[in-house]
């Protein structure tokens, strides 16, 4: 198992590369969901101002 994490001596390069890419994936999910939630909240506020909202 520890042999796996050593990556044949390239651990200092392989794992940070995987970490950065994984971070890009996770952040894309978080940011996209947040952007959608923000748009919905803004739309709700717009409707409320016009007296049509919930």
């Amino acid at each position: 198992m520890s042999q796996f994490f050593e990556m044949g001596g390239y651990a200092a390069f392989v794992w940070p590369a995987y970490a950065v890419t994984l971070a890009a994936i996770v952040l894309n999910i978080v940011w996209a969901r947040r952007a959608l939630a923000r748009s919905r909240e803004e739309a709700r506020r717009r409707l409320a101002v016009r007296g049509e909202g919930p």
Binding site: A32, R33, A35, L36, R38, S39, R40, E42, A43, R44, R46, L47, R50, E52, G53, P54
Partner: peptide, 21 residues
């Protein structure tokens, strides 16, 4: 997912938005 947010933010008055929010 992002497209839904962008489409929503471009619509000012359409009634379909009410059903979504």
């Amino acid at each position: 997912v992002r497209l839904r947010g962008e489409v929503l933010s471009r619509e000012r008055s359409a009634s379909w938005i009410r059903e979504i929010v």
